[in-house]
């Protein structure tokens, strides 16, 4: 915002309150109410206003208080934002920030991981940072991108991760996956909130002498770094896809299909998926833990894959 006057923030409680997760804390004082705009509770209104302003040269960053509430602005995203470049040849450079994910007893309406809805709709970029540095570098790349970007920030990572963030202008190109941990015997492909769990499980398996597991952090689902996936599978010959979103028609299905189509010859074992049970995320902590993919479940699945 300091560098580019066309960037502004718009959303619910993002001004004086600094946002439900404090992501915009301090911006009101620094940039004023004209560029940090508090709105009524109106997700279509917020996203529509962002789209309209973007058609006039602005680069709005719209915040959904929780990614669950994107359903109230769904039409604006898939009907308007996603189709404009194709229909008009005019870009819609908006970023929609979406605090997403479960594990905090948010219940069915504050825990969703709705990224795959938007990955399915042509015309949207879908970004899921997993580290503090990426949260900065990918966000800056998203803001500078001339297309609409759905930017999923896993809520659990807000509080559980602490790491140095590069100073100054730091941009991480969209569509380049990151090898979160190198390995040679199997690959866990994941993104967003489940990256730390994948790395932990890989470390434990290595420490216990069961094998060397590579972890790929996709960083973005659209654009998707196909080559990073295939390169790893050709090396390890075993693939497991992990995501917190529920399993049926989740993004794991797409990755699995891609590997089957393009790297089948490299596989020594069936592709495995670990994801949430197909249900709304329940409220009670013990029920929530049952539904979400757990570390134990992941470890067992990876060990099974290694043994196959």
């Amino acid at each position: 915002m300091g560098r580019d006057e066309s960037v502004f923030c718009i959303g619910e409680d993002i001004g004086a309150f600094g946002g439900a997760f404090k992501a915009t804390k301090g911006l009101l004082d620094q940039f004023g109410a004209d560029r940090v705009i508090d709105t009524p509770i109106a997700e279509s209104g917020i996203i529509g206003a962002a789209i309209g302003a973007s058609l006039q040269g602005f680069r709005p960053v719209a915040e959904m208080q929780f990614s669950d509430f994107i359903v109230n602005g769904f039409n604006q995203v898939v009907t308007v934002a996603a189709t404009t470049a194709y229909r008009w040849g005019i870009g819609v450079p908006i970023v929609i920030r979406l605090p997403s994910g479960a594990g905090l007893s948010g219940g069915p309406f504050h825990s969703k991981n709705p990224e795959v809805w938007f990955a399915h709709q042509p015309g949207l970029k879908v970004v899921c940072p997993a580290t503090p540095a990426d949260a900065k570098g990918l966000l800056i790349a998203a803001i500078r991108d001339p297309n609409p970007v759905m930017y999923f920030e896993h809520k659990k990572l807000y509080r559980s991760l602490k790491a140095e963030v590069p100073d100054g202008e730091y941009v991480v190109e969209l569509g380049k996956a990151r090898i979160a941990r190198e390995g040679s015997d199997a690959t866990i492909i994941t993104y967003g909130g489940t990256v730390p769990m994948a790395v932990q499980v890989a470390e434990e398996i290595a420490a216990e002498g069961h094998g060397s597991v590579e972890v790929i952090d996709l960083r973005s689902l659209v654009p998707l770094d196909h080559e990073a996936i295939f390169t790893s599978i050709r090396k390890t010959n075993r693939a497991l896809i992990l995501h917190e979103d529920n399993i049926t028609a989740g993004f794991g299905a797409e990755i699995s299909a891609l590997i089957t189509e393009q790297a089948f010859e490299s596989l020594d074992a069936p592709i495995t998926r670990v994801a949430a049970f197909d249900a709304p995320v329940p409220f009670a902590p013990n029920l929530e833990a049952e539904v979400l993919p757990s570390k134990a479940e992941l470890k067992e699945a990876v060990l099974g894959l290694l043994r196959y």
Partner: peptide
């Protein structure tokens, strides 16, 4: 759907 978008274009006029 166009009403919020048109309002956004109007917002841009106000900001500029």
């Amino acid at each position: 759907a166009m009403v919020p978008v048109a309002a956004g274009v109007a917002l841009a006029q106000k900001m500029k």
